[in-house]
């Protein structure tokens, strides 16, 4: 390897989990005796001018870390931060043992990563393993998104794959009624905003994600919204009206005139 910085050495000793257009995600260890961390590496984009690339990468790593900390301080369940190397584009966060909501809901499972045709478990069995019903899960999602919006953070990419449910086997819940915890992940597109519009669009994006990945999603989304409503309180009436508006026109506002 040409580069031998500490962060590059850390990455080369880690296991690649997935890759997107912006970043590669690894599972690694900061120290061999410690617990696992998730490393999100925003690799160099050769199609951009080098100095622009450095500035953008730094700003995005910093932005994601700040959004996570703001969520933590506001009581939103998100992974803890473990290391930040903005100049190399590396963000290390807590490894969460569990499954994504997409995997746990009907027919969202299996991205085809080598599991073959044989379904190992039916989704309901898996949810059972987590000790919650679909209704409880929707309730947890609604509460978490509401807490995030109350802190004026817009996620920007709410989908069922960006929510994880902790495995009760490796997590001790402090709430006797719910043995698990819903964790929001991937704040790469998040930003700060107090506008009703932005929050409504965030919800709309999630509604579309539900509709396109899970059959019969309407009652599930409605259940989620009911929990959201209860948590946000007085802001809800304005939000509901705006959500209806967004549903009619779509995510983008008309910029004509």
């Amino acid at each position: 390897m040409a580069t031998t910085s500490a962060s590059m050495r850390l990455i080369s000793s880690s296991t690649l989990i997935s890759q997107g257009a912006e970043a590669k995600v690894y599972k690694g260890y900061l120290t061999p005796s410690g617990s696992a961390v998730l490393l999100k590496y925003r690799f160099k984009k050769t199609y951009r001018h080098p100095s622009l690339d450095t500035t953008l990468t730094k700003a995005r790593v910093a932005g994601e870390a700040r959004a996570l900390l703001k969520c933590l301080r506001s009581g939103v369940n998100v992974p803890g931060i473990r290391m930040v190397d903005a100049s190399e584009g590396l963000l290390g966060i807590e490894w969460i043992e569990g499954k994504s909501v997409k995997y746990l809901l009907p027919s969202g499972a299996d991205d085809g990563d080598g599991e073959g045709e044989v379904p190992v478990e039916s989704p309901s069995q898996t949810l059972e393993h987590f000790g919650i019903s679909v209704d409880t899960l929707m309730n947890l999602i609604g509460i978490e998104i509401a807490k995030m919006h109350l802190a004026d953070i817009i996620h920007g990419d709410l989908t069922t794959s960006n929510m994880m449910v902790r495995d009760p086997a490796s997590f001790t819940s402090l709430d006797p009624k719910v043995p698990t915890e819903l964790v929001l992940i991937d704040f790469g597109l998040s930003y700060h905003s107090t506008l009703v519009e932005d929050k409504a669009v965030d919800l709309y994006v999630l509604e579309r994600a539900f509709a396109s990945t899970h059959p019969d999603s309407e009652p599930m989304f409605a259940g989620m919204l009911a929990a959201y409503e209860k948590q946000v309180g007085k802001e809800w009436s304005a939000l509901r009206r705006r959500l209806d508006e967004v549903r009619l026109r779509g995510r983008k506002r008309s910029m004509v005139g």
Binding site: A62, L68, I81
Partner: peptide, 15 residues
């Protein structure tokens, strides 16, 4: 503990 640990980790990019 979670907040304080995360604050330490992100200090270099603290706003």
């Amino acid at each position: 503990d979670k907040i304080v640990t995360s604050s330490v980790a992100m200090k270099s990019v603290m706003s």
